[in-house]
């Protein structure tokens, strides 16, 4: 039997595939049977927060910051309650990270304020003198891509049933309406709390700087 397998490339390949796929079938597939269950009271990200998550991805904060507090006293003392599976139910993709060159951010919204973030993103050394994090000044002038974030909200609502209200609907008109009634007012609040006039002015002009969206996202991490 074995010798036959070794000389029949097709069945050999099938054999290899079965062997390597077996682990996947058992480890991965059953998890799709049950949907990720959100913890009680977990709300999906607002469009502004989704745009902030895109900034988080774009400038790749995940390279240095984790979002996973492990169940050790040393970690819960430092960052807060350990992470629960249900807290990530709306995270597509997950952003746990694999390296902590900087501290964990899973509950950063609990202990940092928008104006702290504003100072920190502009010049990290101004708040943490020994920081090796680079400044992200371009986030103060780049405009966040709200439309793509909105498209993402529509997609996850339609495809995965993420509980967004009826306002989140396909098409330009629905987006414009959401922008005026929800996204910009939310951004303005954040911009004001960041205590920088240039950011407030930009938002008032209808353009949300990347850093405002990012801080909206970081504020959600609690």
């Amino acid at each position: 039997m074995f010798h036959w397998l070794e000389k029949n490339p097709f069945f050999f390949a099938v054999g290899v595939f079965v062997v390597i796929a077996y682990a996947g079938v058992i480890e991965i597939l059953p998890n799709f049977a049950e949907k990720a269950r959100p913890v009680k009271g977990l709300k999906p990200y607002t469009v502004l927060q989704l745009a902030g998550k895109e900034v988080y991805k774009k400038d790749n904060c995940i390279a240095c910051h984790s979002q996973l507090i492990r169940p050790f006293k040393s970690e819960t003392d430092r960052y807060g309650h350990y992470s629960l599976s249900g807290e990530y139910a709306y995270d597509r993709p997950f952003l746990w990270g694999s390296k902590r060159t900087g501290p964990d951010l899973h509950r950063v919204g609990n202990y940092r304020t928008p104006d702290w973030h504003a100072n920190h993103m502009w010049n990290p050394k101004s708040v943490v003198p020994d920081s090796i994090m680079p400044a992200y000044k371009h986030q103060f002038t780049n405009v966040a891509d709200l439309e793509t974030a909105y498209a993402e909200a529509v997609t996850v609502k339609k495809v995965f049933g993420t509980p967004y209200g009826p306002d989140i609907a396909p098409g330009k008109a629905a987006y414009e309406k959401e922008l005026k009634t929800k996204i910009l007012p939310e951004a303005l609040k954040i911009a004001k709390r960041m205590k920088r006039d240039d950011l407030v002015k930009m938002v008032e002009a209808g353009k949300v700087p990347e850093v405002v969206a990012l801080v909206a996202y970081l504020e959600k991490l609690k």
């Binding site: 599976s85 597509r92 997950f94 891509d145 439309e147 974030a149 498209a151 995965f160």
Partner: peptide, 14 residues
Amino acid sequence: LGAWYHSVSMYAGT
């Protein structure tokens, strides 16, 4: 709407 190349993962969280 939005950037044509953007996508979301089929899987969520854990």
